[in-house]
Design a protein around this nucleic acid. Structure first.
Lengths: 145, 145
DNA sequence: TATTGTTATACTCTATAACTATA
DNA sequence: TATAGTTATAGAGTATAACAATA
């Protein structure tokens, strides 16, 4: 099937993404880490301790902004700081168990919300989405950087 | 196919959503309306002028917060205020042409970014996603409120 | 009295500029 | 000199509480 005259794939997928994200964003909880905070936690959890400058670059934040975010996260017990043994100027930021717990709780809330949404669909629609998941995962992977 | 032992649909879809949203969020532009600001603009564009209280309720914001957001948007030329002829206490917020232009430019940037992403996929993956779009749209519709 | 909207105030988040310490 | 990080300062965004105007 060609795309002649029809809406582009992006223009069809965009409202779907927007609606689902708005739906997830409205989940309320005492935890509720900010999007960037959650992204930093996930990165530290997956890649191990990291330096402020690297976290700032990877999350597209300024260096002072990352210093401040890490400071708030440290105050909240989600990360700890340690001097970088390899560089006296550097600081290594490491996730704590509480930080991992926050990731897990947040993830669980989002998953439960999406799962409830799936239950409202016809089996045929569920199958269609499940069948497209590998392709969607590759689409998301192409968006990695 | 049952879901015995496998990851739930939500847990599979969540990282896809997260990755795509992070990818879109990093688009830089002088425009760059905040998510809530964009949502308000879209609502005013679609439903016509609305009152502050209604916008606040629909966007899950406080009434003073919406007053302030509308104030910033008015200052930026994206909306205008007018007294509600039907209620002397009320204010009708209306989108301006510049507001519509901001919606269009933002939408175009997001769509172009997603379209570029699609072009990196195999045709089979594109077909799988296109085939699942109606189901995904119904999933998103189920998330409406 | 209840509702609509605003103002006052405070807190979170993030940015740029200036600074300190180390390489 | 260049780099890593922090501190100082300011602005956007949002909340609750108190207020003014209208229903």
């Amino acid at each position: 099937m060609e795309n002649t005259g029809g809406a582009s794939r992006g223009s069809q997928l965009l409202p779907v993404l927007g609606q689902l994200v708005r739906f997830l964003r409205q989940i309320e909880s005492p935890d509720n880490p900010s999007p960037v905070s959650l992204a930093v936690l996930r990165r530290l959890d997956g890649d191990g301790p990291g330096r402020v400058t690297d976290l700032a670059r990877l999350e597209r934040a300024s260096q002072p902004g990352m210093t401040q975010l890490v400071g708030r996260m440290e105050k909240a017990g989600l990360v700890r700081r340690a001097p970088d043994p390899a560089d006296g100027r550097g600081v290594l930021v490491e996730i704590t168990q509480e930080g991992r717990d926050v990731i897990a709780r947040t993830h669980a809330r989002y998953v439960a919300t999406l799962d409830e949404l799936f239950e409202t669909l016809d089996p045929a629609d569920r199958d269609a989405i499940v069948g497209a998941l590998p392709a969607l995962e590759r689409l998301a992977a192409a968006a990695s950087f």
